[in-house]
Amino acid sequence: MLSKRLIACLDVRDGKLAKSVKFVDTKDIGDPVEKAREYYLDGLDELVFYDITASSDRRNIMLDVVEAVASQVFIPLSVGGGIRSVADATDLRLAGAEKINVNSAAVLRPSLIAECAEAVGDQNVVLSMDILHVGRSSEIPSGYEIVINGGRKRMGLDALAWARSGEQLGAGELVVNSIDADGTKAGYELELTAAIAEAVRIPVIASGGAGQPDHLYDALTVGKADAALVASMVHYGEYKVSELKQHLHHRGLKMRMSW
């Protein structure tokens, strides 16, 4: 039986961890490689790097980070942020990323999913979806709408319909990121996560809103997610990766407990 996965997401800007992320151990500040290594040794199941660099030479900087992390961290590594073409995807794969995350660019040009799936394999393309609760309407029957550009732009696209399209286009996995829950620390958007998990046959990763270990438990049970993604919960030193896994294990979920 598969274990549920704990995934940590690190935002990287100009090759360094984004300034919004503060760490208890000051020697680690700014070094994504050190942080990745620390989580890996503490039992993390999968790592996501999200490139939020704005400058034009971003690609090479990110490739160096991925390359450095991939030489030291031997778990699946997923990279996202600004992937617009198959060339972006294959470069990141060569640098050592196992999985490629597409988001806004795929909403604007859905065939990007199929192109990436063809180039790097279905199972390695992750479709990240930023989703806003807008209430049911004829245009948005599920009441959940896809947004892009960090939640600023509404796309008039139903989240459930987009999840199904993503699966058909060849995405191997979906990240369900609730813009409403993100940053609240009040828990994942369970209703949305469950609705999407039931609508597709590919794994679903819950994202946005985690503040307590029980939130992860809820996402993996009520929310029917296969994996839970955390960021600030572990970055600020509030919880250790191993503590979260212990908690979920004690509550009866199958987790990978030896590493």
């Binding site: 039986m1 598969l2 274990s3 199941d45 046959r201 590919i202 794994p203 029917k224 296969d226 990978r256």
Partner: peptide
Amino acid sequence: ELKIPHMGWN
């Protein structure tokens, strides 16, 4: 509920 591919830790 059984996803294909079999993806993850087992």
